[in-house]
Amino acid sequence: MTGARLAGKTAIVTGAARGIGRAYALRLAKLGADVVIADLNLQGAARIGEELGAESVMAEIEALGCRSIGVQGDLRNPEAVAGLVAETMAAFGRIDILVNNAGVAVARGSGTLSTDTTPEAFDYLIAANLKSTQMCCAAVAPVMKQQKSGVIVNISSQTGISLLEHGNLAIYGAAKAGVAYLTRTLAAELGPDGIRVNAIAPGIIETARLKKLDPSMGVGTPEQLNAIALRRFGQTEDMANVLEFLATDLSGYVSGQVISACGGAVLHPN
């Protein structure tokens, strides 16, 4: 472990079977937390060719000396959200950290511009990104209130702060802008109960999934690289570094903030 700042804590990370979510989960475990891996597909890494250090993310966490369970389900559904919280409480008896990472940028059978988005795709993108986040926050709030402590870290996006070229990923960006606003409202609501709520707005991150995207989607282009002040796309560990700050007492007086972790692609106030 890199340290024991989170020893004795229990964290839920949604969308954690691969990519950035996996990096969040592993970092929390390295800090001493037991981690619940929630995902639509707990074998998601294999689908995109992402190599794990064990047979599953849960096994990776256990190899770090922490406990872990996996909970598979579609967090657009209230029943799945309730089940996630119930399984976490049954296994660990507490919830100290929630990382709302689950989400999706595109919908099959639909364009990515606002005027090209089908009604079905609109509903899907809002539910997968914004509704699921709100429901997970609402589900853990009673537990954290009883504990008089807790940390919620929502995952917004650079796209929720600043437009991509030509308005690409329009509804995804609208949903992630909603996540940023929701974060601020939750900070105001839950702060009196000792619960801090913040968000990370990642820029373009070089995940295994990104490398497999169709170039026609317009994500990860040379033009976007040149627009980044640091002239590199992000790595999953860059995002885990920000999470470490927000999930530990290093940020004990920080709440209601959206941290743009984009290498300087966004250089204006949130």
Rank of each mutant, 00 (worst) to 15 (best):
N198C: 08
G218C: 13
A208D: 15
A199F: 05
M239N: 03
G234H: 01
D214H: 11
L190V: 04
I205W: 05
R196G: 03
E223L: 06
L250D: 15
D193H: 15
L186G: 00
S251L: 09
T207D: 00
A187C: 09
V197W: 03
A188S: 10
L246H: 06
A247M: 11
T248N: 12
T236F: 00
A229C: 12
L246Y: 01
T248H: 09
V219A: 10
Q235H: 10
T248E: 07
G252F: 06
F245M: 14
L190A: 07
D249P: 01
E223S: 10
S216D: 13
E189L: 08
D214V: 15
I200N: 03
E189H: 03
K211D: 07
R232V: 15
I204N: 01
Q235E: 09
A240S: 14
Q224T: 04
N226Y: 00
Y253W: 15
I195W: 06
A247P: 00
A208I: 10
N198Y: 01
I204D: 00
R232M: 10
I228H: 12
M217G: 14
L246N: 03
D193Y: 12
M239P: 02
E206H: 10
P202F: 08
P192W: 08
S251P: 01
I200R: 02
A229I: 07
F245Y: 12
L225I: 14
A188D: 14
F233N: 09
Q235M: 05
Y253D: 13
L186E: 05
R196K: 15
N241T: 15
E244S: 13
R209M: 09
A227Y: 03
A227K: 06
R232L: 11
V242T: 13
R231L: 14
N198W: 02
P222A: 10
D238G: 05
L213E: 12
D193S: 14
F245A: 09
D249M: 06
I228A: 14
G194S: 06
S251T: 15
A187D: 05
I204V: 15
I195K: 14
A240K: 01
L210S: 11
V197K: 00
M239Q: 15
Q224N: 07
K211E: 13
L250W: 08
T221F: 06
V242P: 01
N226A: 15
F233H: 11
P222E: 08
I205G: 02
R196M: 10
M217R: 12
L186Q: 11
L243M: 06
I205C: 11
N226L: 07
L243S: 00
P215I: 12
E244I: 01
G252I: 11
M239H: 02
T207Q: 01
T207Y: 01
L243D: 00
K211C: 06
N226F: 00
Q235R: 09
S251N: 13
P192Y: 06
A208S: 13
E206P: 04
P215H: 13
P202D: 15
T236I: 06
G234L: 03
D249A: 09
Q224D: 07
Y253S: 15
P192A: 09
L243F: 04
K212W: 02
A199M: 09
A247E: 04
P222N: 08
E223M: 08
Q224F: 01
L246E: 02
L230H: 08
Q235G: 10
E223A: 14
G220Y: 01
A201N: 11
